[in-house]
């Protein structure tokens, strides 16, 4: 076990856990957006920043990737932490004003209008869908494409492919509800990836089920060409 101090409280954590895990294990709340227990931490949303108090002074670290070590002194809600989080939320709101979860966070912090406008997306590029598709499903159907302001999550060549199996893990894991799923009787569409599936009818109960084809046949995509 590792012993550290969080918000003035001595807490114990399993060796190898992060500061975020140690805090949550001890019912100390740290807000996150890009973190998911089942996935590798990404440190993308910067909402989980905490203040690390050291003899040399304080510094802000992302608690989701910072290892909990013996003797660490951490503050999860100090002045500089609140200031940093506030700025982060304001920037997230500027980039994704349509996302309900961001609106709620902003309202909590008393942010009414962001001082700048950076777009009108509902995606905050937290990468949860990409990581879930890769680490949990293993389909690797989507990825972060382009860079800077043009960055977005897309399937390769921005066209729907049967690398997507319609499992909807991305829909479940998305913190902002940016990925829309439409299930109509005999079809399923995951709109953001332009994935459409035809559901088959069960011959016994009459219910519909999804039996997508797995793994794209690349040779088929390329015609008859031999490689």
């Amino acid at each position: 076990m590792t012993t550290l101090t969080i918000d003035g409280r001595q807490v114990e954590a399993l060796r190898g856990s992060t500061v975020l895990e140690a805090a949550r294990e001890n019912h100390i709340e740290i807000p996150t957006l890009c973190y998911h227990e089942a996935l590798e931490p990404y440190a993308g949303c910067r909402l989980c920043v905490v203040e690390l108090v050291t003899p040399k002074g304080s510094q802000l670290v992302a608690s989701c990737v910072y290892a909990a070590e013996d003797g660490l002194v951490v503050k999860t809600n100090s002045g500089i932490v609140q200031e940093s989080r506030r700025m982060t939320v304001e920037l997230l709101l500027a980039a994704a004003p349509k996302a309900k979860v961001i609106q709620d966070l902003a309202a909590e912090m008393g942010i009414e209008e962001p001082r700048v406008s950076l777009g009108d997306s509902d995606c905050i590029l937290c990468g949860l869908c990409v990581r879930a598709c890769k680490e949990i499903v293993g389909a690797n159907a989507i990825s972060l494409v382009n860079r800077g302001f043009a960055k977005e999550v897309k399937p390769p060549f921005e066209i729907g492919s049967n690398a997507c199996t319609g499992c909807t893990t991305c829909v479940l894991v998305c913190p902002t509800g940016a990925i829309k799923l439409e299930d109509v009787l005999d079809s399923r569409s995951v709109h953001r990836w332009e994935s459409d599936f035809e559901a088959r009818e069960c011959k016994i109960c009459g219910d519909h089920y999804l039996a997508p084809e797995f793994a794209p046949d690349l040779k088929e995509l390329l015609g008859e060409e031999e490689v």
């Binding site: 690797n140 159907a141 990825s143 860079r147 897309k154 390769p156 690398a163």
Partner: peptide, 13 residues
């Protein structure tokens, strides 16, 4: 390498 990753690299640089 998954095509999604290759596409990600190809569009980044």
């Amino acid at each position: 390498v998954p095509l999604s990753q290759t596409y990600s690299v190809a569009t980044f640089y």
